[in-house]
Amino acid sequence: MARIVMEDRVWEVKRRMNVLRFLQREGINPEEVLVIINGKVVTEDAVMEPQDQVKILWVLSRG
């Protein structure tokens, strides 16, 4: 299962899934995040495989 973490939110995704599809499903604007799969920054056409560790970084500063 791919484990996807974004701040205090966590998702577990069973099947392989395209990053863009995931972001759109969750209502996340790709312009506002960086996606890191297993420590590597990827573009939104990348695919998350079941064993992947995925981190989504929100890039807009709040302060």
Binding site: E31, V33, L34, V41, S61, R62
Partner: peptide
């Protein structure tokens, strides 16, 4: 901002991620 964030991450720069506790930057956001 996204490009700026990516640069900082790729350069391995440790930065302060938390906003000031008094910040009310909601409007700009």
């Amino acid at each position: 901002e996204r490009e700026s964030a990516l640069y900082t991450i790729l350069r391995g720069i440790e930065y302060m991620d938390e906003p000031c506790p008094y910040s009310r930057g909601a409007t700009t956001l």
